[in-house]
């Protein structure tokens, strides 16, 4: 009997650890993203249109990319597993996707800014997962990949 409890005991500890540290890290990340987005807002314009017309001539066009792999925490994964039983919206993973997406786009924009670009055209997003598919190790992480054409005018 005690062997069973020994096996179960770490779970609440991991849940508390996952919830406290995980949500703290998430809040910090979201705050950091908001600050970086605000800083970026006036500098590089991002669009998924093929091109933007502006009076200034285009001097250079380059491919820029950004990517981010974000892992779920123990609590989120646990909550999602529970969700899987009853079905419905998995709120816990929504913020995960949002963080990965915003991070990837920001990285792409930062690369564009480093080139001296003022716009990114034809922005596309892709996702992939290199984890979470294994039966043995059901770790959850998402990868978001953003790419576009950085345009330097002048």
């Amino acid at each position: 009997m005690w062997e069973f409890w020994l096996g179960v005991a770490p779970v609440p500890v991991l849940l508390v650890l996952g919830y406290s540290v995980g949500s703290w890290r998430e809040r910090r990340h979201l705050a950091q993203l908001a600050a970086r987005e605000q800083e970026m807002a006036g500098q590089v314009a991002c669009t998924n249109l093929r091109h933007i017309t502006a009076p200034q001539e285009v001097r250079q066009a380059t491919l820029v990319m950004g990517q981010a792999v974000i892992a779920s925490d123990y609590f989120k994964t646990f909550a999602a597993h529970l969700r899987n039983i009853v079905g419905g919206e998995v709120k816990a993973f929504e913020t995960l996707m949002e963080r990965a997406r915003r991070e990837a786009i920001l990285r792409m924009l930062e690369e564009a800014r480093a080139l001296g670009a003022c716009e990114v055209w034809n922005m596309r997003l892709g996702t992939s997962s290199i984890t979470g598919t294994q039966q043995k190790n059901p770790a959850v992480s998402v990868e978001v990949f953003a790419f576009g054409t950085a345009v330097v005018r002048g």
């Binding site: 991991l14 650890l17 996952g18 540290v21 995980g22 890290r25 998430e26 990340h29 990517q67 981010a68 792999v69 974000i70 892992a71 779920s72 925490d73 123990y74 989120k76 994964t77 995960l96 991070e103 992939s128 290199i130 984890t131 770790a139 959850v140 992480s141 990868e143 990949f145």
Partner: peptide, 14 residues
């Protein structure tokens, strides 16, 4: 996967 956050190693790899 316990505490969440970015997997820098995987980002680099990709």
């Amino acid at each position: 996967n316990l505490v969440g956050g970015e997997l820098k190693g995987y980002t680099e790899l990709l």
